[in-house]
Design a binder for these strands. Structure first.
Lengths: 195, 195
DNA sequence: GTCTATATAATGATAGAC
DNA sequence: GTCTATCATTATATAGAC
């Protein structure tokens, strides 16, 4: 499964042969078919494993407390950090999100992403009630933009780093700073000490 | 090429066979090899065509004038509109951006994306000089965020529409409004008529 | 330009010995 | 559990007639 995960994360399903997986794992092709009934079953096992891994990583974030100024930034930074810490798993799940048709997209959303997403929306709603997050922003849109930025950064660095004026392509810290600045526009400005 | 474009945009390279393309086009497989020396050459021809199409569409935007308040929103809306108007071409180019390794990513950036991107950066820089765009924002980051949001919206609608609280997944107009609001946070507030 | 027919290699999957 | 050997199918690509 380790070999399969490596190969499936770098090439689409149809471009990875059972022979290649067997060679990468140092076993025979027939041995793979002894443990998994089919190529599809092996892929599904790898995907399920990667999903549970990233779900476990993501759930750490929602447990944090503190005001939304800190937790929103922490959410964004840790999401990117998790992807970079397990790029193979991230690529697997992202490919599934991007290339899946209606039926598989529904499964992915309802069985894997839904609970985590709802928990984060609730976090932002309560921040709005406390007056920390601007009342007229859509929590789901905020989460969408954070994910979009992180995923795009993670997936297109190889292209971006060859574009002029892109100072953050190979500097995750700078990207984090830019993100933090940008998130601030949705926050209610902190009260000064007053006159 | 029309048939190949259709199939390549819906499945990765290795999952599309020359037989399938021939059948889709209503010709024989050998006929394809008469016009293109190999499967790879056919794919490259399709990709080049799709890239020049989307480049032509994108270049319309940069010709617009007016202050940055209008042009930034117009830029974002038309980028999404162009992807939705030619989803096949968009998927082809996006797959290439996401899945390409270092060598192909460099080609894509330098030969296709670079000029357009630089033109847009210049547009935003001059807006900063005119005092319409906040001076402390990174023009490249602004463009990155716009593209990230549009691409993510375009690519993951099938997943998003099954998430609760996502009101914009099947409503491009609402998404456009949310984007416009969000872009406004980088603009210098318009001067009121004064006291 | 288009076809039928074919060459050659690789694919997913199986049989059966150890 | 692991292997060698093999099946049937499909893949890319070619040959040569019309």
């Amino acid at each position: 499964m380790h070999a399969a995960r490596k190969l499936f994360s770098n090439s689409p399903y149809s471009a990875v042969s059972m022979s290649a997986i067997a060679e990468e794992a140092g076993v025979s092709k027939a041995n793979l078919y002894h443990h998994f009934p089919s190529k599809d079953a092996l892929f599904m096992a790898v995907l399920r494993c990667a999903c549970s891994d990233s779900a476990a990583l993501l759930s750490q974030v929602s447990g944090e407390s503190g005001d939304v100024r800190r937790s929103l930034k922490s959410l964004a930074l840790r999401q990117l950090h998790n992807m970079q810490a397990d790029p193979e798993g991230a690529r697997l799940v992202l490919r599934e999100i991007f290339d899946s048709g209606p039926e598989r997209g529904k499964l992915l959303a309802e069985q894997i992403l839904r609970d985590n997403f709802s928990a984060k929306v609730r976090m932002l709603r309560s921040a709005q009630n406390r007056g920390e997050l601007k009342a007229d922003v859509d929590p789901a849109f905020v989460l969408f933009m954070i994910s979009a930025a992180n995923i795009m950064y993670f997936q297109s660095r190889e292209v971006m780093k060859h574009l002029p004026d892109v100072t953050f392509a190979e500097d995750a810290d700078r990207f984090g700073d830019l993100m933090a600045d940008f998130l601030a526009c949705w926050l209610v400005p902190e009260r000064g000490p007053g006159p």
